[in-house]
Nucleic acid binder design. Structure first.
Lengths: 144, 144
DNA sequence: AGCGTATCGTTGCATATGCAACGAAGTCAA
DNA sequence: TTGACTTCGTTGCATATGCAACGATACGCT
């Protein structure tokens, strides 16, 4: 057969690891708060950004704008965020965490940190270098 | 606001990087051979495994068995693989690359290596450590 | 052999996704 | 002001996905 080995192919390895790590964490919040991965991304971004448009999230969070829009609709229905029209530019929709949303983030933040730590624990002292490399790759991808 | 920063959250970073890297490579083979990412995974696995069942791929390639099944159907239609019933256990479907499939892999292998190298080039001498860490994380995930 | 159970691959179904197109709103220049 | 052009968020549509259920086959136990 060929000498190509899928299991050691970088894009494949990254995909598998990313899927497992993301799903592992989403199991926690899906069960507890009933939100999906795209919804988690939106509320997580809102927690650091305050009141923000769909477009802003779309650009910063690596999600199609329709995906952001639908996630926002579901989050509003669930009571985690509010949507209102921007006064200066009425094309914009301002998304903002509700109190319920902020409570959720307050609970999720330590869970996220613990989960991240549990994953990185495997790497022991190599974890910092790994994270640096990860950031390097992400930055490089931005400029293409 | 909260002190949670999505952009430095490991699951998020891995997802973004994995999506970009996989899509970057799939742009190449999608254009050239008209196959999708799941289809690429199947042929790539077949290139090292020879004749193999849907179940085997499902287990080894981190894909739902329906996803494998549908990818296989499309690949057969496109002429890249053949499907036949296993003689010993007639529940099993043996998948195998056709000559056209082997030709495709022969073209794709150097493209894959070049693409991987182009991504890792950014890391320079840190690339080997990064790959070691990646393998460590993948191995760790297997045992859970 | 015969019956209950397990496994294989496919398919139906509900939902998620990406992309394009749309209406609404804003901008700019004549 | 008007009209061409751009931008924003939503929606329609075709396709992809995960999951459960199914028919077919194999296995194990009596």
């Amino acid at each position: 057969m060929s000498d190509f080995d899928l299991n050691s192919f970088l894009p494949y390895q990254l995909s598998v690891l990313a899927a497992r790590v993301s799903l592992g964490f989403s199991d926690l919040y899906k069960q507890k708060f009933g939100i999906s991965i795209p919804e988690w991304r939106v509320v997580a971004h809102l927690s650091q950004a305050g009141s923000v448009s769909v477009r802003e999230i779309h650009q910063r969070v690596d999600m199609d704008k329709s995906k952001v829009s639908r996630a926002a609709t579901r989050l509003e229905t669930a009571g985690y965020i509010s949507k209102k029209i921007n006064g200066n530019d009425r094309r914009l929709v301002e998304l903002e965490l509700t109190q319920k949303g902020r409570d959720m983030i307050a609970e999720l933040t330590p869970m996220a940190q613990a989960y991240e730590a549990s994953v990185l624990k495997t790497l022991a002292d190599q974890a910092p270098d790994f994270r640096i490399a990860l950031n390097t790759l992400l930055k490089r991808q931005d400029n293409e």
